[in-house]
């Protein structure tokens, strides 16, 4: 089985890299400035639901969007043969803490459904699936640290299913203003010479 890394996006608090190329944007000034919103605006994306998302979903969405544009995905076509598998360390803890604020004290108790809905790590895979009409598998796993071993195992297992053509797979960590994303798009390719390996995954993450 040959699996090719077609495109990847690496995003941290101050770096934005697409296929090895720096495509970072300027941080805007101001109290409510958000690097994620800066990326959205600078890359002229148009998807208003973005502003409803929590930070984890925003970060994962942006990486998927940049990859989707890079590989020329038609967002109107349903993709039954594409899967999305993500991993991270902190699950949805960033949004969990926001939700906890809404129920903290009984005098000011206003549990918010629009915050609660993001208190699940796998919502980011759902947001990416909705945006790109990806109707294959979506899965989310939590691990202490980035593990190229576990990520490669997931890649191999997804492509063990012959009906899967492509996989959007990555590490989507966002907690307490720390953004750490590696999103990869992989495709089955019989004629390929270099298969995806743990070393490639490690190299593009570091």
């Amino acid at each position: 089985m040959k699996i090719e890394l077609k495109s990847y996006c690496r995003m941290t608090n101050n770096a934005l890299i697409l296929n090895g190329k720096d495509i970072s944007v300027a941080h805007s000034e101001g109290e409510n400035r958000s690097w994620l919103d800066d990326i959205y605006r600078s890359h002229k994306m148009q998807y208003l639901k973005f502003f409803k998302m929590d930070n984890l979903c925003k970060a994962g969405f942006l990486a998927a969007e940049l990859i989707g544009n890079d590989i020329g995905w038609d967002k109107t076509v349903v993709k039954n043969d594409v899967a999305v598998v993500c991993f991270n360390r902190s699950s949805s803890l960033d949004d969990d803490m926001n939700y906890q604020q809404t129920i903290r004290d009984s005098g000011n108790y206003f549990p918010s459904p629009s915050i609660f809905v993001y208190t699940l790590a796998n919502i980011v895979t759902g947001e990416i699936a909705i945006r790109n009409k990806i109707a294959g598998e979506t899965s989310f796993y939590i691990m202490e640290n980035f593990s190229s071993k576990r990520i490669l195992e997931a890649i191999e297992d997804i492509f063990a299913n012959p009906s899967i053509k492509g996989l959007l797979c990555g590490w989507t960590e966002y907690f307490d203003q720390n953004c750490d994303i590696l999103m990869m798009y992989l495709e089955r390719n019989k004629g390929l010479k270099t298969n995806i390996t743990e070393n490639i995954i490690k190299k593009i993450y570091n």
Binding site: S90, L93, T138
Partner: peptide
């Protein structure tokens, strides 16, 4: 201890298992 992987690790360690456990969190 708020982290899901930490609970999984402690559970596996209770049984003296050394493999890093997998945590599935898919709603």
């Amino acid at each position: 201890r708020i982290h899901l992987w930490r609970s999984a690790e402690l559970i596996a360690q209770f049984f003296k298992n050394k493999n890093e456990p997998i945590v599935v969190s898919n709603a």
